[in-house]
Every structure is written in C-alpha cells, then in structure tokens.
Design a protein around this nucleic acid. Structure first.
Lengths: 285, 285
DNA sequence: AACATCGGTTGCGAGAATGGCAACTGGAGA
DNA sequence: TCTCCAGTTGCCATTCTCGCAACCGATGTT
C-alpha cells in the first residue's frame, strides 16, 4: 500500500496544504543555491507519482505561487508568495507583538514598547504598561529623536556607513523636527523630555554614534543608562523581517531604582523576545 | 447554479485557487488595518458555503499558513507564509538592494523603489520612503500596469520585437488584469491610480512604446513626467543579472515641485545606483 | 541509424475527498 | 427565557485525485 492513507479526516485538506511539502522542498533547494527542482526529482523527494507532481506544479505555476524556468523546466518559489508576505509584514508584526510585549511586561514588571523609525525619529506603535504605571494611555504615536534613544540606535544599527552619515548630518542634532509630519496633528506630539544630564550622554558626535552602534551589533541589543532622563534606564533589541531588514525595535524601560544592575540581563531578555517576534515574521537563523 | 463548475480541468488542485483567493482577501484585510477576517465574512466574500470555509481555514491554520486570534476567532496570515517568502529569489534581491536604495533616498530625499515584472504588471519589492513621507507602509507587494510606468518600460526595454509585440497585445491596455489572480476582481492588489492627464501620456500604441523603449536604451534610464499622476515625476533604471538580463528596475519618484528640472540628472543618478547593484549581483562590464 | 534513457505530459478508471445542506453549539443581547 | 449570529460538525451524492501506463521529444550510446 503505497499511500499510507490517513483513516478519515474530518477536515478538508485544502490544496495548498497538500502542496506544502513541495513548497518546503523548493524552499530548501533555494537555500542550497540550487536553481529550482524538476518534476522527477520532486517526485522522488516526495515519494509520489511524477504524474501527480507534474499536474500539481502546473497548477501552482498558473496561480503564480511557483515560477518555471523555460529552458531548464525547473520550478522555484514565485513572486506571489513574496508579494503576499511583503504587503502584510507590518500589520502582522503589530498584532503579533502585543502578546509578546505583554509577556515581557509580566516578567520584567516594566513598561515595554514596539517602535519603528520614521525619518529622524522613533515612532512608538504599541506599548504595554508596567503594572506600576498609573497612566491610562501608553506612548503610542509619540516620536522622539532617534539617535538619542536605544530603540532608534537599534533601528539604524545595520545601516551602511554612507547612508548613516547622510542621515546623521540631517537628523543628528537636538530637537529634530520632522518636515512633513504635518497633516496628522495628533501624532506629531514630541515627547518633551527634560534635558538629560550631560555627563551621562555617550553619543556626542558621529564617531561616538558609530562606536555605540558597533557595541549594539556585537551584543544584539542596546541599553540606555540615564542618558535621556535622570533615573530612567532601558534596553532595546531589533526585530527583523523575512528579508533580514530591521523593521522595528522592542524596548523595555523603567526606573533605575527598580532595574538597578540587572540592565544587561534585561537587554538579553529583550533580545530574546525580539528574536521570537522576528522568527514569527519568517526571519531565518 | 451555485457551483460554477469549470467544464473539465485536466490539472489537479483546483481547490488551491480557492485557497489563494482566501489568502489574497486576508492580505487585503490586513493591508486595510483590519484585524483579520472571520469565517462567515470570508464565506460571503468568496461566495462559498461557510462550512467549507470553516474546514478549509482550520486546515490552513494547522499548517501554520494562517493564524487565528483566540478571542475574536479571526484569521490572518501566518508565519509559515513568511518563512516561505523569505526563500524566494525576490527576497534575496531585496536584501542585496536595501543599502543601495537607502543611500539613494538619503541623497535624493525622495522615495525609491525596486521593482520586477510580473506578467503585465510591475511588482514593487522594496520601497524606502523619503524623509518627507509619513505613510506607515510603502508600496511593497503592490502591482501596477507595466507599460504605463517607467520601471515597467525599463524592464521590457531589451526585449525582442516579437516577444514585445505578443506581450503588448496581451497586456497593453488599461486596467490589465492578471490572468489567474482569481475570480475576485477588486482584491488583485492593484494600485488604483487617478486617471492621468491625457496630454501627458507619451505612449498610446505599440509604435510609441517602441520609440520610448529606444529612447530608454539610448539614455540608460527612463523618466516619467506627470504621466501617471498629476504633479508626480520620476526616473527608473535597469538592474542586470550576471547573464546580462534585466531582472529589476530601480526607481525614484516624487513631486514635480521638489524635483523640477533636475529630472534628467536624477535619471543619471538612478542609473549609477542601478549599475552598482548590477555589479553587486555579478554583472560583468 | 536504431536503440535506450531520461525528464516530462496526458488518458483513464477506481476510490477517496469535497461541497453543500441542515442540524447543532455556545455566546451575546433583548 | 428567547432570539440571533458566528462557527462547527454529520451526512451522502458528486466530483476530483491518485497512480498506472502509454506517450512525447530531446539526448546520448552502441
């Protein structure tokens, strides 16, 4: 009995699921630098009749889930998959981040955020408040100068030097004002922060920024020690999308009195959470 | 007749087309900031029985192509899809192109894209937003009729006449609809563009298209002057792979007010950036 | 030249899976 | 308590898939 038939499924086994094995195999081939797979080879790998594979692949190609090389007749994953994913990463990330942030709040008892870069500023998309926090609303929609926050530094930590240089020239000064944030009045609100203690700042110019970014890359997370506001410390780590790009940063911050010397441990924890989210978005190890 | 039976398909997996329709609908919903779709709603949208949808979605969730929110019971795209998308060729090209696009944005201060041809349409793989933009998401995953965009023209600019002729007959009309994107017309993901000012169009038929392609070849880049939308100009240039084929186009576009008479200079700049990417992909001079 | 091989496609019938209807569950609101 | 609505499940006729085998055409091989 070649087909080890499952007894009786109560569900419809939809076409896509049946073909998932094929897609996975093609994905692996792509990983291994191969130029796609042919019908017979896939039939061997899946243990099914080549006729079935031939017909199935033809349909998958029709729907542009697969593409076929005209000359070699080899199939590979198609742009349709990419398009579906690319359109939706950001919203998936936002939805998926909430449970993760909540758990982070549970274990750290501190406030946590998900932030993205907008021009020269960091925009907070989601925030989960610490149980100590009385404020009703979070920081959603609030922007702050990126280079001064750990999340902002994380977000630019993998930029090429030339792009970084230009970006810094444009945005690397205090009280950066974003040009056309204009139309939507509500979210242009900048967090008005107390002037930080000068002696705590670790980034004063392009060179020190670059050094800090290198530090961030090597650890996998960024920390902030009273640099923005007296008594406030925090840590941020990058979220990667499936293309390997940093699209967001996870942040946890709170009073130095509570966090104390556990800042590096907090950083590692935040990094693990961010990695989990990245994995969810298809980031490969 | 509820089931609009196709006469007799020679191929397998017709159920897959239904699955794809579901995926597109979910992608659209997420694009529109909705938090996923429920069984009944999807049944309405697809015109199928809710029982079928319920069973199908359950299987898709089992395989992690979809995820379900426990409380609202709404479905949205799942991590498996992102993992697959990560292994498309598109994804690797995106990774390679990101630094270049970012630098292009920094020096032009306008939004830039990387696009590929998909059937008769241009698919935007990456977009890096201008610092002036406040939009949350870019144009990733969005398609537009190819022959009307500079990127599309660049992508077909080296085709042989016969292939071009055939392609134009098939796709060279407004509101091109991609073959098997599915029964639902609205959700094919086309950018709905304002009707362009008639007098600005420079391509009206095959002859004028050919002339424009010749112009593109001679300059090494394409420009667009308010042809698609009033007040919007841009330039595109080709990316070559190591065999010398054009596989993608780099594009920069922005308001005419800002770019003004520097359009040709912009074109040359875009062409230089595209060349750089081509070299990175192994193109020999 | 004839022949074998290999990747791929197509015809066909038995048997399994799907689709649609209707009944059912369980929560929310009146 | 009753009703409404989203969602799930049982059932059976209908439809589709699977797998075998034949076929196609390009590429060696003797």
């Amino acid at each position: 009995m070649l087909p080890p038939k499952t007894p009786q499924s109560r569900r419809n086994s939809s076409g896509l699921v049946r073909d998932l094995e094929i897609l996975e195999l093609l994905a692996e081939a792509q990983d291994g630098q191969e130029d796609g797979l042919g019908v017979v080879r896939l039939a061997q790998l899946t243990g099914r009749d080549k006729a079935v594979i031939s017909r199935t692949l033809a349909t998958l190609e029709d729907s542009q889930i697969l593409e076929r090389d005209e000359s070699s007749l080899a199939y590979r994953l198609g742009s349709r998959l990419y398009a579906l994913a690319a359109r939706t990463v950001e919203s998936t990330m936002v939805t998926a981040s909430r449970p993760m942030l909540r758990q982070l709040v549970q274990s750290t008892r501190e406030t946590s955020h998900l932030c993205v870069l907008r021009g020269g500023n960091v925009l907070t998309l989601v925030s989960e408040l610490s149980p100590y926090e009385f404020r009703a609303a979070g920081w959603e929609g609030i922007t702050t100068a990126a280079w001064r926050t750990p999340s902002g530094r994380v977000l630019i930590s993998r930029w090429a030097e030339t792009a970084l240089r230009k970006w810094y020239d444009e945005h690397g000064h205090d009280a950066a004002v974003v040009g056309s944030l204009g139309t939507g009045a509500s979210r242009t609100g900048f967090a008005v922060l107390p002037v930080p203690p000068k002696d705590k700042a670790i980034v004063h110019n392009f060179a020190s920024l670059k050094a800090e970014l290198e530090h961030i890359r090597s650890r996998g997370y960024a920390t902030l020690d009273e640099e923005l506001e007296h008594g406030v410390v925090g840590a941020s780590a990058p979220v990667f999308d499936f293309t390997g790009n940093i699209i967001a940063a996870v942040n946890v911050s709170g009073p130095k009195a509570r966090i104390g010397d556990r800042l590096e441990a907090l950083g590692a924890l935040v990094a693990r959470s961010a990695d989990e989210l990245s994995k969810h978005l298809g980031r490969r190890p």
